[in-house]
């Protein structure tokens, strides 16, 4: 990721890159083509993710602490991070609520996120983005050695369980 001066937080971002609590890798496809001069990151600590099952305090702490450290790393590199802490009085408590609020305020040209680790969260994010009428792009999770598509090929009895060039590429072509 380039370390240029960050743009003014009130400027309309080109891409708003959503980073979830289990996506704390900077080599993620979410950051392909990321330009700190015109793109920004969104992270939110929302109570729903801790209460939809009655989570262990240590599980909640693990995610929140790792998220805050990731935020600090991005921030120190000059990346604008729109980060909603759990104890912010205006916190809306869910990804959908927070994303709606941030998108309404910043009006990014496009939302970008990497395949989440939870079907429910993927559905929430997609339906929120559709309801907002904002363009969005879901990128494959390169953390894994076998892509979802390659697994399907394997399950169908075809071999080659890896990344084809098409699944590994992403759209970084939109001009700033």
């Amino acid at each position: 990721m380039a370390t240029r001066m960050k743009f003014h937080p009130q400027t309309r971002p080109r891409h708003l890159v959503l980073v979830l609590g289990d996506q704390l890798n900077q080599d993620s496809a979410a950051f392909d083509g990321f330009d700190p001069a015109c793109d920004a990151v969104w992270m939110a600590e929302v109570a729903k993710e801790s209460t939809h099952v009655w989570s262990h305090k240590a599980r909640i702490a693990m995610f929140l602490s790792a998220m805050r450290h990731f935020h600090d790393t991005l921030h120190s590199q000059g990346v604008t991070v729109h980060y909603r802490p759990l104890n912010d009085v205006t916190n809306r408590g869910s990804f959908g609520g927070e994303l709606t609020a941030t998108t309404g305020r910043l009006r990014p040209q496009r939302l970008i996120w990497v395949e989440p680790g939870d079907w429910r969260v993927q559905t929430d994010l997609e339906s929120t983005a559709r309801a907002l009428g904002v363009a969005f792009e879901v990128r494959p999770d390169r953390h894994f050695l076998c892509s979802r598509e390659a697994f399907t090929r394997h399950a169908r009895g075809e071999s080659n369980c890896g990344w084809s060039s098409s699944t590994a590429s992403c759209d970084a072509s939109i001009a700033c």
Partner: peptide
């Protein structure tokens, strides 16, 4: 923060 917000949740810190 977790002790405060999620006081009734199970588990120790």
């Amino acid at each position: 923060l977790v002790e405060d917000h999620f006081a009734k949740h199970p588990g120790a810190l």
